[in-house]
């Protein structure tokens, strides 16, 4: 049984590195990623699981880091936007003009990247089902969908 009491040292496997940080069991993964590990690419927007700006991958699946405790992630592989190095989805977002203010972008790219990794031939329905998790306030989502589809059609 894994257990943590009070503020303790935990090990998180983030973007391929084992990181040691002090965390309270009550600290969210989002807070620890940003404040303790300086991985500010993961964004806080609603803090309530509603907008997906804080999405990271846990063992390859998108999760909302604002609703996950950092201690829950112990023993799992975490990928943040900083862990994606020039993957096709990032290029597609740039080329399709799918970025405006950029604040939803990390969560959007992380989610889209996971989608195309898990479902390389995703149908339009699956794309929509995944992307409806993320709120973008700048675009009409059209260029974002185009970016995702362009990766699927590669």
């Amino acid at each position: 049984m894994i257990e943590f009491h009070d503020k303790s040292i935990i090990e998180l496997y983030v973007n391929g590195d084992l990181k040691t940080v002090a965390a309270r069991p009550a600290d969210t993964l989002l807070f620890i990623l940003r404040e303790s590990l300086g991985l500010t690419g993961t964004k806080n927007s609603c803090g309530n699981g509603d907008c997906n700006s804080c999405t990271v991958l846990l063992d390859g699946w998108p999760v909302k880091s604002c609703l996950m405790l950092a201690v829950e992630a112990v023993g799992h592989e975490i990928t943040t936007i900083e862990g994606l190095q020039d993957v096709p989805m990032q290029k597609a977002f740039v080329e399709k003009s799918a970025i405006q203010c950029g604040y939803c972008t990390p969560g959007m790219i992380i989610n889209s990247h996971a989608l195309t990794t898990i479902y390389p031939d995703a149908s339009d329905e699956i794309i929509e089902e995944w992307l409806e998790s993320n709120i973008c306030r700048c675009t009409g989502y059209k260029e974002i969908c185009e970016a995702v589809k362009s990766v699927i059609n590669m």
Partner: peptide, 13 residues
């Protein structure tokens, strides 16, 4: 941010 503290257990069984 959660302001109160709690302990965390992850049992295997």
């Amino acid at each position: 941010m959660i302001t109160f503290d709690f302990d965390y257990y992850r049992p295997d069984t």
